[in-house]
């Protein structure tokens, strides 16, 4: 039996679970929830499942998960792909946890700005964008330092759940009026993630066209 994802296609948090499953080669059952305009995630039936009224929710047998980072860890372990959890030495394990916690700050800043701009949710938009900018500066500096050490990803030289947790809200920052132009190291990192085997898209996040053959020329070569 596959895990079931209560899903909304435009939600970056739901996308994290879909992306993680795709990257470790797992399949999910999907139940579409009308987050907007229906607001079904705040209706009594849904609150029976998740009293917090948030998306996504992942269920598997009797297990109900409502926190996205927990879902990422679960999907990785379920697939037996524990390399996605990072190294086991204390520092490596802590680095992954550091970025998983950081991802919540991205949601609260860049995610809030995006909800404000896309769905008209109330927010102090200038404060949300500035908080998001400070997060992006922190991320940019960390990625610069990692590159100086010869590391391509957030917690070392291989991608982990930390990268999957941070990538979507960063990539969609422009939806909330925060440009990624000032962050060359972040842009290079997002390209590395989008080039990973098994990578899947969501609206606003596309794979790298550069890696695909020119349409027409592929058929000609075949």
């Amino acid at each position: 039996m596959r895990p079931t994802l209560y899903d909304y296609v435009l939600s970056p948090s739901c996308y994290k679970a879909r992306l993680m499953a795709a990257l470790v080669g797992s399949e999910l059952e999907s139940v579409a929830v009308d987050f907007h305009p229906g607001g079904d995630h705040r209706k009594p039936e849904f609150l029976m499942l998740n009293p917090a009224g948030t998306l996504p929710v992942l269920t598997h047998g009797g297990l109900i998960l409502t926190e996205t980072t927990a879902m990422l860890v679960y999907l990785v372990r379920l697939a037996g792909r524990c390399e996605w959890l990072g190294g086991e030495d204390p520092a490596s394990a802590a680095r992954v946890q550091q970025w998983l916690a950081f991802s919540a700050r991205l949601t609260a800043s860049l995610g809030l700005a995006r909800l404000h701009d896309m769905l008209g949710r109330p927010a102090d938009i200038d404060a949300a964008r500035w908080a998001g900018t400070l997060c992006l500066r922190e991320l940019e500096s960390a990625l610069v330092e990692n590159r100086l050490l010869g590391e391509d990803f957030l917690a070392g030289n291989a991608p982990t759940v930390a990268d999957v947790a941070c990538f979507p809200y960063v990539m969609l920052a422009p939806d909330g009026g925060v440009s990624l132009d000032p962050y060359p190291a972040i842009r290079a990192w997002t390209r590395r993630i989008r080039a990973l085997p098994g990578f899947v898209e969501m609206p606003g996040i596309h794979r790298l066209h550069d890696l695909r053959p020119e349409p027409g020329e592929a058929e000609a070569a075949a």
Partner: peptide, 13 residues
């Protein structure tokens, strides 16, 4: 060395 470049990056911030 790498350590000095990391220090330079932080000094710029």
């Amino acid at each position: 060395g790498t350590g000095a470049l990391v220090a330079a990056s932080r000094a710029l911030e």
